[in-house]
Amino acid sequence: MKRLLQDIDHAIKYYPGLEKVESSNELRVRGIIILKHPEIGEYDRYTVSISFPRCYPNCFPKVIEVSEKIPKVADRHVNSDNTLCLAVEPEERILCRNGITFKYFLDKVLVPHLSRETYWNYTGKYEDGEYSHGIEGLWEYFGQLLNATKKEDVLNELEKMLHEKWLGRNAPCFCGKAAKFKNCHRKKWERVMLLGQDYLLNWLDILQNDRQNSSNI
């Protein structure tokens, strides 16, 4: 608890609109986040309420946007409990695998996310795209990690990665490209494996069950 308080105190020095709210059963951060561009200055502000789940700092804090600038609808990435959906679950897991600080979360996750919502308010779109809702978004995420456009390819590669013995580092890559395994598939596999064997096996199971729905991502 002490470490969390220090973590929060350090971060809110940089975000003077935020304040720590302690009560008997929970710790929250509330207040205004002013979005500023180094040259242009303030371009928007949001009022937020942030709580810290048990898994923090190995997961993101939960954020509710209370200024109601972001409509509470699925298309604006707001969960049914009104918290913001900030990333696909495996991506969050990779980012938080070694623990994060609250300042890192504010700087690198929440402020960019709110900026994306501001951009949406001006243009009606996410300029850099978005993952589809639910499990389709997960297919897209794994497809992107593995450079695969077909669900079949995602499953095949995950199975190969998780169930077969990996090739030697200097062996020619199985994909047929004229490159050593270490310079080809091994690199991206290592990144995917950051998610953990058990976690991936669980996802492989979920994706296999979902597989029959459609063929392409």
């Binding site: 990333a87 696909v88 980012l95 501001t118 951009y119 001006y122 993952y131």
Partner: peptide, 25 residues
Amino acid sequence: EEEKKKLAALEMSRRGVVSKPWRND
């Protein structure tokens, strides 16, 4: 002004570590 703010928001949104937004519902 509006254009400036729009571009500022876009630029700052790209300084994050999360690739794209998603909703798990």
